[in-house]
Design a binder for these strands. Structure first.
Lengths: 243, 243
DNA sequence: GGGGCAATCAAACGTCCGTTTGAAACGGAC
DNA sequence: GTCCGTTTCAAACGGACGTTTGATTGCCCC
């Protein structure tokens, strides 16, 4: 391979370790050791640790985002413009990528990395997400709003946001939430089955009739059921001077 | 106040800073400075930084978990055992807590902290989540399986997992996904309205008829839509030796 | 008023961090 | 062969990290 082998190895290790251990928890020394690359190579190729993170996200998100846009393009000039199909066009590229990662034995990489990134300082994460996912997301909301004219656009955007939450849940296999039958855990289904289930779930939520009104009102019951005073005994305290 | 003022101040600052900046990115020096407390106090009260994280999660999760269990208890000996009510019992305590936090101006604390924690090393996060959320989650799945006898228990567990994803999405206000009308962003609705919307979404998903079969099959279309070879042109490459 | 214990404090411990440096290795152009 | 731009390398930089220490404070019981 010509020159770029080192660069790619750094990106591979960064993607894996940032996702697995966290960004702040992953030192460049451990990273370069993992990639079998000289420490200074990171700064030579990416300028800084933050530049490396940016490159990692770019390499991960760009193909997904362009695939999404391409699929939405195809839908724009097609007869199938119902909400489930649009949602599918948005979900499919990332599910496909996830399956590819799972085949490599790196199941949770995608979700964890996104979770890591989402929990960066505010401005930075806004920049990153907007740059790498903004296009497709806005286009998808637009298409959905057109396909669901009975819903207010704000509601469509909110539900789209929730659908993304379902997608994140599909990525993550948070332990402890598995099915149980008595004491013995029920084995999980494979990824395609779970992905189908996620799509069904998100589709139903997206096309739901309206915000539930038959449920107990939210606002009056909004206090925690514990008999807590205005600031709970454990943690709800109003902070005094937390500059 | 008797003795425990320092302890609480540390917990308050830790909750805020861990969520805002990240766990690895928050130094104990910055934390104790923020709490106006001596550096060594952390180790005196919590033993280590990890012990502090554990205490933070405990203080945050315990009231939520017990409120959930109490609500599920009440449902067990009641006539209202339909799925939406059960889901509501599970969602309400954490939504209430979120509203309390928002009233303190700390909107995203809960979501970010959970996202941070979820992206810790594997065994640790499993331990944490199981300890602090396991009870109520298992009980909720059980109640839902009883309320939805037409669904396989595995499916119920999966959908419950997705519902949790919706809840996480409600917590997080990920930027860039807001509603737009042309160029001007549509202002967000307030939290109770969004919470109702989330419940409606999750309820519809939970009670959906079955995993969609009318959608394009997942498995054959599982490759990215780009005409990419086995490793895509930009990032989908199968890594050679990323050990 | 003095012993005893929990809590706080300033200071230091050794380690690891992200980053920089300057020299060495490489490869094609002339 | 020699130059030159690109890439790799070992070594070091100052600083910040989590943790430990040992002295000091405040307070209750006797």
């Amino acid at each position: 391979m010509p020159p770029p082998e080192t660069r790619e190895r750094i990106l591979d290790s960064a993607e894996e370790l940032f996702a697995e251990r966290g960004i702040g928890e992953t030192s460049l020394r451990a990273l370069t050791r993992h990639a079998r690359v000289n420490l200074a190579a990171v700064h030579y190729h990416f300028g800084s640790k933050e530049g490396l993170l940016d490159a990692v996200v770019e390499r991960l998100a760009t193909p997904i985002n362009t695939a999404r846009c391409r699929a939405l393009d195809r839908l724009d000039q097609s007869a199938h413009t119902d909400a489930p199909t649009i949602l599918w066009a948005f979900f499919q590229p990332v599910i496909a990528r996830m399956e590819a990662l799972e085949r490599l034995g790196r199941t949770a990489t995608l979700a964890r990395l996104l979770a890591r990134i989402e929990s960066q300082p505010r401005a930075e994460v806004a920049r990153l997400f907007e740059r790498h996912f903004g296009d497709a997301s806005r286009r998808c909301v637009e298409a959905l709003a057109h396909a669901l004219p009975e819903l207010d656009r704000t509601v469509v955007a909110e539900r789209f946001h929730f659908a993304n939450g379902v997608l994140m849940a599909l990525f993550s296999d948070r332990p402890g939430f598995e099915a149980h039958r008595g004491d013995t855990p029920v084995p999980r289904r494979d990824l395609p089955a779970r992905a189908r289930e996620a799509i069904a779930f998100a589709t139903a939520g997206l096309c739901a009739r309206s915000a539930c009104s038959s449920l107990p009102m939210l606002v009056p019951a909004t206090r925690p059921p514990s008999s807590a005073p205005d600031h709970g005994p454990d943690g709800t305290r109003i902070e005094v001077d937390s500059r």
